[in-house]
């Protein structure tokens, strides 16, 4: 699946976009975050306060218990500050 990162999540992870192939044991958004945190310090720093990061699955807001099965695009970002 494609992963996108925005704002300070992007800066901490160190990339705006990448391709992810998590193992089948990674079933939810929360699982994916835990799996990413093991990939390096940048990820661990980005997700050190899980409640401060929002997620979207295929461009729709998703909670941490949402299933990532069949998802093509996952995105992580801080709470929105538009308007």
């Amino acid at each position: 699946m494609k992963a996108l990162y925005f704002a300070w999540v992007r800066e901490r992870v160190g990339t705006a976009e990448e391709e992810l192939s998590p193992p089948s044991t990674v079933e939810t958004v929360g699982d994916l975050i835990a799996w990413l945190c093991e990939r390096g310090e940048g990820y661990a720093h980005a997700f050190d306060k899980p409640a401060a990061v929002r997620a979207a699955l295929d461009r729709v807001h998703a909670r941490s218990d949402a299933s990532i099965t069949g998802v093509k695009e996952v995105a992580f970002f801080p709470p929105m500050t538009g308007g």
Binding site: H61, M80, T81, G82, G83
Partner: peptide, 9 residues
């Protein structure tokens, strides 16, 4: 728009 639309300042 302020709380759900994905924009960051």
């Amino acid at each position: 728009l302020k709380t759900r639309a994905p924009f960051w300042k």
